[in-house]
Every structure is written in C-alpha cells, then in structure tokens.
Amino acid sequence: MTYDLTFAKEVYKNSEEGHWIKMCMQCGVCAGSCPLGFLGAWKYSPRQIFQMVRAGLRDEVLTSSDMWMCTSCYNCIVRCPRNLPITHIIHGLARYASVQGKADPKQPTHQFAKDIFWENIVATGRVGEAALTMKLYFKDGIGEGIKQGLEMKDSALGMLKAKRLKPLPFRGKIKGYPGFKAMLNKAFELENKKEGKA
C-alpha cells in the first residue's frame, strides 16, 4: 500500500495545530485517557484518526462524528508522551470538517457548538443562558421542545428559584457591541483566507 499524503498535507496546512500529527508515534495513550472512550462513544480514537489522516482517508476522517465527542478534558494533552496538543488537534479537525461542509449539520455537538452556542455569544457579546437553553430544546421543533422542557422542568424551576436562571430568554448587547462585531468580522475575513474558504 502506498501512502497518499495529499490529505495529510492539507490538514498540516489548514487545520488548527494539524501539523503536529506528523509527530504522533501511535502509542495510544490518548485513546486510553479519553473519558468518552470508555463509554464506546467513538469509533476511532485520536490515535486512529491521526493515522487515518496520514493514510489519506479524507472522507472517513472529515465525516466522522468522533472528533465531536471531545469534552475538552485535556487528559490526552497532559499524558501524551510527545507533548502533542491532542485536544486542540481534535478541535481543529472538527472545525475543519465543518468548514469543508463534511460534518453532519445535525451531529448534536456540531450543531450545538456552532449554530447555537457560537451564535448566542455573537448576538450580544456574552452568553445568554436562558436563550441558549431554549434554542437547544426547540432545535428539532416545538413538539420536541415542549417534551424536553417538561423533562427538565424540575431542574429549570430549581434554577429559577435559586436565582441562577433568568425568567425570560432576553439579554441586552454589551455597550461596545459595534466594535465587538467589527472585530469579529475582520477576524473571520482573516480566518477564511487561512482555511481556504475565500
């Protein structure tokens, strides 16, 4: 079998911290340190994903939901004997799969992180927790939203009673919002160039 390095080179260049994959020695400490690995949440461990990048398996890597199973616990980072920033490499591959249109838009963490969480902070400059929860519950329609809401009713009431949740899902923008928005617009312009979108 011959290795086709086209995809590996693409990842080294365009995916955040992707160039570190070159250094992976396939020991598997990351796989054995991942809290979701023990739950059978992923098909391929970080070690396997890295080898698949080097083997040129572009579609298999970018359509995988495995990168989206990262809880950001950083166990793999501190244990990697070669000090690779594994958590960030995995985040980078998830983001790259999203940018390339390969990640399933309905993959739950992809959808929550990109369409719900990021949009929530960009809308006002800060997280609006009540709006975030509402949008998450109602992402699959009104019926599903009511069902989810009822299921978590006791928790939500507990949070309201403890004054740790706003009764209404609205929040104002930060004062410097126009500058904040202009900053992000410019940042995305620079980011898109790097990711090969624009």
């Binding site: 955040e16 950001s72 998830a94 999203s98 963490t109 992180a113 990109k114 990021w118 940042a187 620079l190």
Partner: peptide, 16 residues
C-alpha cells in the same frame, strides 16, 4: 465579552 469557552472552536476557528 464572552471568552469563547470550551466549544468556541467550532464556530470561531482560531483568530475569531
């Protein structure tokens, strides 16, 4: 403003 938290990478990439 918000720091981006753990999952800001998906919508925010590196520079944003």
């Amino acid at each position: 403003n918000c720091c981006g938290a753990s999952i800001g990478y998906a919508g925010g990439g590196v520079i944003p």
